[in-house]
Design a protein around this nucleic acid. Structure first.
Lengths: 116, 116
DNA sequence: CAGGATCCCTACTGATACTG
DNA sequence: CAGTATCAGTAGGGATCCTG
């Protein structure tokens, strides 16, 4: 059969990219992960929000919860006043670094050409 | 100043990742581009839709228009009956291949650990 | 076949206000 | 400070009908 791309081994639901967008979903997912990877140390919520500007508080909270459940980020709460919560990228999360570095580099080289 | 990550050179709006998610947006963007890159030849609309299953017709159309405007994909219409329209990844689009291959490989290696 | 158009509905995203 | 609550808008999805 010719041109039956849908029967390729990794097409459709078996595509790693479809899995990716289903497991690591949301507009801000990549920018947040990349920022945590670059910082590579514990960051407070508000510091992180400023670094991923202009993300909203709600969205950052939601994404961090998602990453926590996926073992990509750790969350540590300190019993202090004022409250302090620190987020840090995990080893699993760090393993995304080469890929995300590559994506960042691609954007630096081609962002201009993409217009707008 | 300590922990002022928001003043890093590529933080916030200057982050290449924020640019990326603004220029190449939508849940299906990466799966579609990856599929077109792997196929690496002209594909008809309906073949592409089957290969990126389960994307809807509406969403595939919308994304392809976006990619066309960003010079990532070409669209060629044939004056035939029945009509034929073929989409193909551009050189600019292909330059994303190493990055997307890396992402796909990461998913193959770590998808299991991400759960669900 | 490749879409455009419509309706309808849910999920995601954002802005703002409020709380322990 | 680090959230939660609320409201509202936008994006995405499913189904159906239509046209060149």
């Amino acid at each position: 059969m010719i041109n039956n791309f849908s029967t390729l081994p990794e097409a459709g639901e078996n595509c790693p990219m479809v899995s990716f967008v289903n497991l690591i979903s949301g507009k801000w997912a990549i920018p947040i992960l990349y920022r945590l990877i670059v910082i590579d140390e514990p960051v407070r919520f508000s510091d992180l929000q400023r670094a991923v500007y202009p993300i909203t508080q709600k969205e950052l909270t939601r994404q961090l919860r998602q990453f926590e459940s996926r073992q990509l980020v750790t969350r540590q709460v300190f019993a202090e006043v004022p409250p302090r919560v620190e987020y840090q990228i995990t080893e699993l999360g760090k393993s995304l670094r080469p890929t995300l570095d590559s994506l960042a580099q691609w954007m630096r080289e081609n962002g201009e050409q993409l217009g707008k």
